[in-house]
């Protein structure tokens, strides 16, 4: 029986549907259109705006790499990681979303290393799982990953 899947944080991304349907979920101000991620609850943070309750909005699937790095050492708790398993570096990508005019962090999809990335490269948000494996509750934690679009063909520094 496959492991139960629960999001690492509820409400930050879509949980069902196909990979093509996958989106990060932010919130948007009904008055000034400012977007917030992680999804801000309540009121707009634009100091010049008196907008009302923020509403959920899916973020752009595609963005361009603002910067990137990797983690060569195991991060401390509360990062979910099995200390029994040798540490595998993960890649961290900061991605600029043109429509939202913001930068969103995320881990890169499995197998994508810093050598596969370049500032300005186009990437897309895809569903992924945290690499810690099933937790004490037997469930895997789902998350979002950034993955180069047509890896190897859209690189180049900006």
């Amino acid at each position: 029986m496959p492991s139960k899947r629960i999001p690492v944080v509820a409400g930050w991304f879509t949980e069902d549907g196909t990979e093509e349907d996958f989106r990060l979920l932010g919130t948007r101000c009904p008055l000034c259109s400012s977007v917030f991620f992680p999804p801000q609850k309540g009121l707009c943070r634009n100091p010049g705006c008196t907008g009302g309750e923020l509403a959920e909005v899916p973020l752009s699937r595609h963005g361009t790499v603002w910067s990137y790095t990797d983690g060569r050492y195991r991060p401390p708790a509360p990062y979910l990681s099995d200390p029994e398993v040798p540490w595998e570096p993960y890649t961290l990508v900061a991605v600029e979303l043109a429509a939202e005019r913001m930068v969103v962090l995320g881990q890169a999809a499995p197998g994508v290393g810093v050598g596969d990335l370049a500032v300005g490269m186009t990437v897309e948000a895809v569903p992924g799982v945290m690499d810690a494996g099933p937790g004490d509750d037997g469930a895997v934690r789902t998350t979002w990953h950034w993955r180069p679009v047509a890896a190897g063909s859209s690189g180049g520094a900006a």
Partner: peptide
């Protein structure tokens, strides 16, 4: 992006 941000503010409105 600054510690501990997961995203920047959006520059859509300002």
């Amino acid at each position: 992006l600054d510690l501990p941000d997961i995203a920047t503010d959006s520059a859509v409105a300002v």
